[in-house]
Design a protein around this nucleic acid. Sequence first.
DNA 1: TTAGCTGCAAACAGTTTGCATCTCG
DNA 2: CGAGATGCAAACTGTTTGCAGCTAA
Lengths: 128, 128
Amino acid sequence: MIERDTSQRRAIRQVFRESDRPLSTQEVLEAAKKIKPNIGIATVYRTLKLLLGCDWLANVRLPGEPPRYEIADKPHHHHFHCIKCGRAFEVPGSDELIADIVPPGFTMESHDLVLHGRCAACRDPHVH
Amino acid sequence: MIERDTSQRRAIRQVFRESDRPLSTQEVLEAAKKIKPNIGIATVYRTLKLLLGCDWLANVRLPGEPPRYEIADKPHHHHFHCIKCGRAFEVPGSDELIADIVPPGFTMESHDLVLHGRCAACRDPHVH
DNA sequence: TTAGCTGCAAACAGTTTGCATCTCG
DNA sequence: CGAGATGCAAACTGTTTGCAGCTAA
């Protein structure tokens, strides 16, 4: 799927390897610019699509948020979306709980669970 | 919150009252045009925002899908998104289970849970 | 009558695409 | 050298906003 190993593509993969949370397109662009200063947004979009297509990246879609991306080989987990700083975090998955609520006759193949609240850094409700 | 009862706003509320499923912006526009043919898309957006603000409408956001809206008076529930027919269904909420996985230091205020799979009508994997 | 609402079109924001140039292999 | 990748800017799509005219109360 990946045809050539260019410095731009190397920079984008490095950005994801060094991140512990899912990144939006803009976050990828900004981080990649620190490695390859004149990389363009079109290259970010094209590379994200490429890395999704070969399953090197996975799409993280929080309802109502622009799409984010993370390396695809992570173990199953859910996401926590901070309502103050807007960042997304990983939280451990617990699946048996969810299987119980599938209605009779329905077959569940996957699920998305997103928690909304304040992350540890934004926990004080008096500060904003 | 609603200041005036105009024919456009009446048309949009009628559309939701007569729908048994969440509607996207375009679906609202098309249905409202049957009642008020020259209603504009800007009025739809403005009215949806207004009806969300006064909690007459609720936002139904399935990850990766355009936003939909439904009348807000429904009890807490999750959605099951059928990967074959694309329809969204309600499933009962089960909240205590989810509180357990919030990481230390984080504060959860709400959550979104979407199940993906086949509904009872689409359960046979050989048919498509 | 008049504050608030509407339709239109222009403005915006996020994403994709066309193209001349560049570069990996 | 040449196919494929890049950066730029223009094109697109979905949503918001400015404004002159309209309408509910």
